[in-house]
Simulated assay, not measured.
Amino acid sequence: MRSVKFMRAAKTSYIVLSALYCVFGVLLIAVPDFSMKLLGILVGCMMIGFGAVKLMGYFSRDLYRLAFQFDLAYGILLIVLGLIVLVRPVQLVSFFCLVLGICILADGLFKIQAASDSKRFGLRPWWLILTLAIMACLAGLLLVFRPMDGARALLVLLGIAMLAEGILNLCVACSMIKIIRHQQPDVLDAEFYEKRG
């Protein structure tokens, strides 16, 4: 039997950080006069945290392997970008909005593929994940191209994108990460002997 503690920790962390993304997104939409330095520090920490959770999820080997299938490289990328943002939080506001927009767009595209795969697995909420993934892609594109000028508009766009990403990840965590208590390991450890005569 395989221990499910690591999988449960990955799923719980994924849900908690997704909820934090939602809360932070709503906060940015409601209060767009946020301190740029504090914003850079918070976004950098959240990127590092989410990168670590994605790595943990990738190595947890959940049952369907849909939620974390692309998260090895993506988790490392988030950690590196989060560290860059933490080093210069004020000077890189425009940079981290661009980077976060690209990351949200990429994650949305990965989740579109995961939704397609979950349809083949017979998971019912595949259409909801597909819809939310498309919305996250659009929010990421808005953040990258920034059709509105000004710091307040940029922070509202950042809030919308983070809210969309948080909702998408919450839905993915709740519907795609399945933990089976008596899950068998991937490789059976056994010895076979040929019987003669």
Rank of each mutant, 00 (worst) to 15 (best):
L142F: 13
V172D: 05
G140Q: 03
R146Y: 06
L158Y: 08
A164S: 15
C174W: 13
L158G: 00
C171L: 03
G166T: 04
L141W: 06
L138C: 11
L170W: 01
I134D: 02
E165A: 15
R152Q: 13
G150C: 03
V187W: 04
I134V: 15
R146Q: 15
V187K: 08
V187A: 10
A173D: 01
P147K: 12
A164V: 00
V172M: 12
L143C: 04
D186W: 07
I129Q: 12
A151L: 09
L170R: 08
L158R: 00
A153W: 03
P147W: 05
L138H: 02
W126E: 09
I167C: 08
L154V: 03
V156M: 14
R181P: 01
I160L: 11
A161M: 01
G166W: 00
I129M: 08
M148R: 12
K178Q: 04
D149W: 00
R152F: 13
G150A: 05
A136C: 04
L188N: 09
C174V: 06
L132E: 08
M176S: 05
L128D: 02
A190F: 07
L163M: 05
I160S: 14
P185M: 10
I177F: 06
L130W: 13
G166M: 03
A139Y: 00
P147H: 05
P185S: 15
L155P: 02
A161Y: 00
I177C: 04
L168N: 01
S175F: 12
I160E: 13
L157C: 10
L138S: 08
K178M: 07
N169F: 05
C171E: 07
A173E: 01
I134T: 11
L170P: 09
I134L: 13
L142P: 01
A153D: 10
G159L: 01
K178I: 04
Q184D: 09
L188S: 06
S175P: 02
M148K: 14
M162A: 07
G159F: 00
V156F: 01
V156R: 13
I134C: 12
L157I: 14
A136F: 00
L138W: 04
L138M: 14
L163V: 00
R181H: 09
L132F: 12
L138T: 07
A190E: 11
L141N: 07
I180A: 15
I129K: 03
D149T: 15
E191P: 01
L188W: 07
E165N: 14
D186P: 04
L163G: 13
C174F: 14
R181N: 11
R152W: 02
D149A: 12
I177A: 03
C137L: 09
A161G: 11
R146M: 14
M148Q: 07
V144N: 04
M162V: 00
R146H: 08
C171I: 02
W126S: 10
A161F: 00
G150T: 00
G159W: 00
R152C: 06
T131E: 10
M148W: 15
I179A: 09
I129A: 10
L188E: 14
A139N: 05
L157Y: 11
L132G: 15
E165Q: 14
T131G: 06
